[in-house]
Design a protein around this nucleic acid. Structure first.
Lengths: 217, 217
DNA sequence: GCAAAAGTGTTGTGATTACACCCATGT
DNA sequence: ACATGGGTGTAATCACAACACTTTTGC
């Protein structure tokens, strides 16, 4: 059934779409390529899957390499889609299992600040074309994020442990690009049961401080 | 960056979850294995991805091999998820890109009838464990199908070109396992805009014949 | 007390369901 | 005529959004 001569094995990679919401805009972590092909272009971070590690494991390893050890553990990480067009990498036939990961902006900013090769770019209205089929991968990740916003607590992965309802609304607006009605949004979020009030308040605010919420259970 | 010695390539396969609704029950196409490992177990049909073909292309080739040429073209085919645990195949490290495909029951029954090695089994309450991680792949496919039922016209892929609203309701009930209210279901389906009345009627029915609908546009 | 943002009450609308009923057809 | 399933009308419920309003805080 299986003959290596007839069915040569392929290179399998993981590409990572690591996103955060910074100052009201959805941003993605990119890496400037120094070698051909696509030298000088921005690309998603990625790497080869090792023979003895699973796909999720490989994705988490790459996440730790880019965002630092501490962030790797509790970040939202989810398989996105697998891209395998024969000509997607001019060097060789590769199949790339794309993952997307979400981090609070503070953690991602800290990780990027300490590295020269990493770059945060806006997801929407980004002018520069990415290397390989990474523009398509990024679009797929953005679509998936938009779709899951309404029926999963995925947005909470983009916020710190405690956050205000306004913070949460900003995250939603950044991802969908749609401005939401404040009272409707508040009640919709509270009704989901995903979050609970802490009893604590914002500090160092110019005006009335808002209540801090946290993820439930 | 890429050293074949350090990053040996992996075997990449496509596994196919080919489903249909037969007599009110969701069924899946399985193949009895004759060789080790898992000899005698039922398994999803699959095959290796060739170096010069894309993933969708490989999935469609396998679909044609199993269901016959004519069906391969217009069947619903969609990438499901990629499974790559290091020990999922005891022979070697393989990464399997799972696809799911949908066919009208008449077409699938015809394809299976002409082949001894193929078998249609119910998806729910199937007692026999499948080979490899195929039980998990099948469960993932069933979940995906349930989820997409409400916001895509995916159920129409399980029906012939013309069908009654009762047929469509049976398909929905078979997939979700939930009995639906007839008038509510009718109107919900018509309001989606996915289907249109043809003006034609069922024939050879014992009682009042129902109107035939077809997919719009 | 004023500005600014947090938070709530009220109403309207659209989607969906449940139930009851009428309609059309073959025997 | 009647049994059977197709198809429709009506009312109740729910989710959600829009808007106006009150409340709370720092200056």
């Amino acid at each position: 059934m299986y003959h290596p001569m007839i069915h040569p094995p392929l290179a399998v990679t993981v590409d990572l779409v690591l996103m955060a919401v910074m100052e009201g805009h959805l941003a993605v972590l990119l890496q400037r390529r120094e070698t051909e092909p696509f030298a000088g272009h921005l690309a998603l971070p990625g790497g080869f899957v090792r023979v003895d590690e699973g796909l999720d494991e490989a994705a988490r390893r790459i996440l730790r390499d880019k965002a630092g050890f501490a962030m790797g553990e509790d970040a939202w990480l989810e398989q996105l889609y697998t891209f395998g067009a024969p000509d997607r990498d001019p060097r060789m036939r590769t199949v790339s299992v794309a993952y997307f990961a979400l981090l609070p902006s503070a953690q991602l900013a800290q990780a990027v600040g300490s590295r020269d090769d990493l770059d945060l770019e806006p997801v929407v209205g980004h002018p520069e074309p990415l290397a390989f089929d990474h523009t398509q991968i990024l679009a797929t990740a953005h679509d998936r994020l938009k779709a899951k916003l309404d029926y999963t607590p995925i947005a909470l992965a983009l916020l710190p442990d405690m956050f205000t309802l306004r913070d949460l609304q900003i995250v939603h607006e950044a991802i969908t690009g749609i401005n939401l009605n404040k009272p409707a949004f508040r009640r919709r979020m509270i009704d989901t049961g995903w979050i609970e009030a802490t009893g604590l308040r914002e500090t160092e605010t110019a005006f009335r401080p808002a209540e801090l919420y946290r993820q439930k259970s």
